[in-house]
């Protein structure tokens, strides 16, 4: 079917601990572990159900629709030019 959406798998390897939850629960077996880190082996099979994203205990995987445009960053009332944890000059 031509209108099948395709998805991008954003993986934060530093945060992933290779717990295998996402791999085990992906309904389409898209994911696998490589060197203890999640890897999208068959990204084109992904149906965007986001179970991996929802269940990931480490926020290490994010599913984005290939065509999706990122949401605008909503302005906040407080100016954070320097994040609170900035190291002092």
């Amino acid at each position: 079917m031509s209108d099948k959406k395709s998805y991008v798998h954003v993986i934060r390897e530093k945060w992933c601990k290779g717990c295998n939850i996402c791999v085990a629960y992906c309904p389409k077996k898209v994911l696998t572990l490589v060197n203890g880190k999640v890897f999208a082996e068959r990204p084109h099979d992904c149906i965007g159900c986001r179970l991996c994203e929802l269940r990931c205990p480490d926020f290490a995987i994010e599913i984005r629709e290939a065509s999706a445009v990122p949401e605008p960053e909503e302005e906040t009332t407080v100016d954070y030019s320097i994040p609170p944890e900035a190291t002092h000059a």
Binding site: G18, C19, R55, P57, F59, P83
Partner: peptide, 18 residues
């Protein structure tokens, strides 16, 4: 900047926090 967190691999606390 505080991540990755200290919870063990596969610990559910991360999922609940998420």
């Amino acid at each position: 900047d505080r991540l990755p967190h200290i919870w063990c691999p596969g610990c559910g606390h991360g999922t609940v926090t998420g």
